[in-house]
């Protein structure tokens, strides 16, 4: 999901009909530049090198969205299975992973890993920006944040859930955080928010076709002990385990 304003120009995109590394290519009707839908970057044409702004969309079941946003407007139309599949709940979701980051600085956390751990801490995609990644196995929601506040890196541990909702405690202040909102919900840091990081679910195979396997975080095979193993390559911190 991208903003389509570039400077003072609003772009309108069409489908170029081209597949590049198994992902489709867009063109803008204003300049005919070609854009990668994967990275939001123009590869050819007058706007070559330009990047679109990534927006913080989520993917959740309709039942949850309508409860949280009863005033939402919704697109309806003919249904079809697209190139990225249906992203249905259940085992089919193991074909996906959460792609965290933007452009070429990305990492993919497999659904197998996320659904087992529910949250994890990892090194940053950029120096000084370590990550907190969370996923809800029930709804499929996945979010990522930079776990730095006022220049301090936060280290989290799992706290008791509140009304069934996952809560994390930062070790140096003991404050409680909602890892799906990136927000401190109680304690000394209440109201504080972590910087948001783009996170989108991708079909694993398509992601590999673009970015290779080096950036993939997965469960070790076989995992030695549920919930205490580290992903390969190992994220810096522990996540939850069930």
């Amino acid at each position: 999901m991208y903003g389509r304003t570039l400077g003072d120009r609003v772009l309108e995109f069409g489908h170029q009909g081209i597949l590049y590394r198994n992902s489709f290519v867009m063109y803008d009707k204003q300049t005919e530049s070609l854009w990668l839908h994967v990275t939001g970057e123009a590869l050819q044409g007058p706007l070559k090198g330009s990047k679109l702004e990534f927006l913080p969309s989520v993917v959740v079941p309709w039942g949850l969205w309508k409860l949280r946003h009863p005033g939402s407007r919704v697109l309806l139309g003919r249904k079809a299975r697209g190139m990225m599949g249906a992203f249905a709940l259940g085992r089919a979701r193991e074909l996906y992973g959460l792609s965290v980051g933007q452009g070429r600085r990305v990492r993919l956390y497999t659904w197998k890993l996320l659904s087992r751990r529910r949250w994890l801490q990892d090194e940053g995609l950029e120096e000084g920006r370590p990550l907190l990644v969370a996923a809800d196995p029930e709804t499929g929601l996945g979010r990522a944040w930079v776990r730095v506040l006022d220049g301090r890196t936060l280290v989290f541990e799992e706290a008791a859930p509140e009304d069934g909702a996952l809560r994390l405690r930062d070790r140096d202040s003991g404050s409680l955080w909602d890892p799906f909102q990136g927000r401190c919900v109680s304690g000394k840091r209440r109201g504080a928010e972590l910087p948001w990081v783009p996170a989108t679910f991708w079909l694993l195979e398509r992601w590999k076709g673009f970015f290779g396997e080096a950036g993939i975080r997965d469960l070790p095979a076989p995992e030695k002990k549920e919930g205490t193993g580290t992903a390969a390559p190992a994220p810096a911190g522990e996540g939850g385990g069930r």
């Binding site: 959740v60 407007r73 299975r81 990225m84």
Partner: peptide, 22 residues
């Protein structure tokens, strides 16, 4: 249980069902 892509921006919420995006 159908997944939708959702976004809230400037106080407005919109959803695009993945099945329709296909």
């Amino acid at each position: 249980d159908e997944p939708v892509i959702g976004l809230v921006l400037n106080g407005e919420a919109r959803a695009w069902p993945i099945s329709v995006m296909g």
